[in-house]
């Protein structure tokens, strides 16, 4: 079954002097993700909601094998990110603002390049390129160097390329960040399409409306810990809240109080 199981992962970073200054802390270590667990199911969008610095990106990086969790494991369709990272990378499409495309190359070139690295046949690459590029309106810019594309077009090219191998698991970190409304809309529409195709979709965001509009399940993460995690309506019902915003701020307040004690 194409579920994605995050099992008690913890990730601690050593902080350099510079980082300690930036974070205004004396601690030499930062627990970015603390004993975090959740399950995402195929045909659903799982939203990881949390304020900046909550640990969302760190969690998604651990899922995509860019970093190894110190403890715990993630099973992506049964493959462990700790022991079978190679298999995991073949199954996921990962998008985050830190994954950049090289300015010098064109969308066409890069799409074919990453397709080959995923071991996909030439004609399949071509077929997917046409459908994805026309879907995102990249086709008019397919021979323009990435460096000359607008931010939105770059982001859309990144999305197309992250999907070159038609992955069963789609993991997008803040996919609409910094995009204009129109572009953001085309991205969220596509995420819904992917869900309807039966893909397992995980996205992270700090924007409440994104979760409300898109997600079937939500996990609210604060300070590296999962505070609540379930179907959207269940989460609200269990916490006796009318809307997500109220719940979100209540959780953050609780955390701040705990921090002060």
């Amino acid at each position: 079954m194409n579920t994605l199981e995050v099992k008690n992962i913890t990730k601690t970073f050593k902080l350099s002097k510079k980082q300690r200054k930036l974070e205004k802390t004396d601690d030499k270590h930062k627990i970015a993700v603390n004993d975090l667990s959740f399950i995402a199911y195929p045909g659903e969008i799982f939203g990881l909601l949390g304020p900046n610095g909550a640990g969302k990106t760190t969690c998604l990086r651990a899922i995509s094998t860019l970093i190894k969790p110190d403890e715990g494991d993630v099973l992506v369709g049964g493959s462990s990110v700790v022991n079978e990272s190679f298999d995991v990378r073949g199954k996921i499409g990962f998008l985050t603002s830190e994954l950049k495309l090289e300015d010098h190359f064109t969308p066409n070139y890069l799409f074919a390049y990453f397709g080959r690295l995923h071991g996909i046949e030439k004609d399949v690459i071509e077929e997917r390129r046409q459908s994805l590029f026309s879907r995102f309106g990249i086709d008019k810019f397919q021979e323009v160097k990435v460096g000359d594309l607008s931010t939105g077009m770059k982001q859309k090219t990144s999305i197309a390329i992250s999907l070159v191998h038609d992955p069963e698991f789609v993991i997008f970190d803040e996919p609409t960040n910094g995009l204009d409304v129109l572009t953001a809309r085309s991205v969220t529409d596509y995420l819904l399409d992917l869900r309807n195709q039966g893909k397992t979709v995980i996205l992270s965001t700090h924007i409440l409306s994104v979760v409300e509009k898109l997600c079937d399940r939500v996990g609210i993460i604060i300070n590296g810990r999962m505070k609540v995690c379930d179907k959207l309506d269940t989460v609200l019902a269990e916490n006796n809240e009318e809307d997500l915003e109220e719940l979100f701020f209540k959780l953050i307040q609780d955390e701040e109080l705990r921090g002060e004690l």
Partner: peptide
Amino acid sequence: GEKERGTIATLLVTPVK
């Protein structure tokens, strides 16, 4: 440069050793 610009990470999430 690829590390600095973040383009190597794109490569690191592909099934390439």
